[in-house]
Structure formats: C-alpha cells, structure tokens
C-alpha cells in the first residue's frame, strides 16, 4: 500500500515492513526468542525464528533494495545467540547479496552488538537521522511536542518497540488483537516483524491512522 507521509513516498506491506525508495525497514524480529526460553527451562519449541528469517528473505528477493534497516530488537536476548542462529542469519544475508545491513540498536540487542558487527551489520545507537527522516527504536514524546519541531532537520520518525496492535470486534461477543501500523502525524510505529512476539494494544487518538495487517492484506481501520 502506498502512503504519502510528510512528503515521503512510502510503500507499506502487510508483513510489517516499510519501503522507502531502495531501503526496507522492519522492526522487532526478536530472533532466537524460543532459544532464550528453552535455555531458561521453558519448553517452547523452535521454529518461529527460522520462519521469520525465511519471510524476510523472501520479501527481500521480491523487490529491488540496497539496504535493510532494522528499527531495533533484531535479537531477543544475548543468551539466544547460538551457532544455529548465527548460521541461519548469515545464510539469509548471503542469499540477499550485496545489501547494506543496518541496525538501530534496541533494548533487546544491548549485549549483542559485537556479534552482529562481526557478521557485517552496521549497528548504530538511536536516534539516527537520515535526510528528513529520523529512526528510533523506542518512540519518544515527539507527537506531543510537534509544534516545536518546525526548525528540526527531520520531519518524521520511524520506530518500533511497541509491537502495536488494535483490538477489533470479530462478532457480537469476541474481539481480536490485530497487529497494525500506527501512523501518527509525525511518526510511524511499525508492527513487530517477528513471528513469535506478543503485541501491545494501542489507543490511537483522532488524528492518527491505523492500518491492520490481516492475512496478507493491509486494511485501514476507520477511527471514529
């Protein structure tokens, strides 16, 4: 879905990714999360990490991009870093060819910067300013202070961290939590790209937009 946001021409995907020109943005993959649980004695089967990487690999193949930017929480925790994760990740990187791999460090990546750099990732601490765009992991209070931003270099922010979802009624008695893009006047919060991560129900305000990611489609939820 194409979206014109503060002068930026963006393409939004139901997978939770955003493309701007030849850069693809994703957030919150939480790779190795099952391993972290397993190592702590909680019997969660593996599979989600691999599925997430395969999805990413497929998406990269389908479009012409030169760089991938992860808006934080590429990994779930340092103890989730295993040989098998390392090989899965480098396989994904190799199959994608000459891409530039960038990570805007998130709270979960804290103790894994070295390993990622070794694999060829460019790890940067937020905020990262790129042209008229700013990249963060955790959203800040920018929207509440938008009037004071006129003289800033950037005019919008991409971020993750929240794993936004929106509660929609399914029928008279049930509701469902659906992952979504949360589009605010001067920022966009990406849904979590990872396959086995929770979501957080957002409470958008009137001037916001909510794009639901449902079974491969993006649907705008009309806010009243």
């Amino acid at each position: 879905m194409k979206l014109e946001h503060r002068g930026h021409a963006l393409e939004l995907y139901a997978s939770g990714a955003i493309r701007s020109d030849t850069t693809l943005f994703v957030a919150d993959l939480h790779l190795g999360k099952e391993t972290v649980f397993q190592k702590s004695g909680l019997a969660i089967p593996s599979g989600a990490t691999q599925a997430t990487l395969q999805r990413l690999q497929k998406q990269i193949h389908e479009m012409e991009i030169t760089r991938l930017v992860v808006l934080g929480d590429l990994l779930h925790a340092a103890i989730g870093w295993t040989e098998s994760l390392e090989s899965m990740l480098s396989e994904t990187m190799q199959s994608a060819g000459g891409l530039r791999w960038e990570l805007v460090a998130g709270n979960h990546d804290r103790r894994s910067h070295q390993q990622l750099r070794r694999l060829g990732w460019i790890v940067q601490e937020p905020p990262v300013i790129d042209g008229k765009m700013r990249w963060l992991h955790e959203p800040d209070a920018i929207d509440t202070a938008s009037s004071t931003q006129e003289n800033r270099a950037f005019n919008t922010t991409l971020c993750g961290h929240l794993h936004p979802s929106y509660i929609v009624p399914v029928d008279a008695k049930r509701t469902a939590k659906v992952p979504c893009f949360w589009i605010r006047p001067d920022s966009i919060v990406l849904p979590a790209y990872g396959g086995w991560v929770g979501t957080h129900a957002i409470q958008p305000s009137r001037q916001d937009r909510v794009l639901l990611c449902v079974e491969g489609d993006l649907i705008e939820w009309k806010l009243h």
Binding site: E34, V36, F37, S40, L42, I44, P45, S46, G47, A48, H76, A77, H108, W196, G198
Partner: peptide, 21 residues
C-alpha cells in the same frame, strides 16, 4: 521480562511447531 510470553503465545507456538504435544 525477556521470559514473558502469554499463554496464548505458548499455545500458538506449540500448535505450530509441536502439534503432537
């Protein structure tokens, strides 16, 4: 905090990756 998952998520993970559980 990194060990928190809802039971719903656990259920989904088992259903998907260890359905014979």
């Amino acid at each position: 905090r990194h060990l928190q998952a809802s039971t719903t998520m656990v259920f989904d993970a088992l259903k998907q990756y260890d359905a014979q559980n």
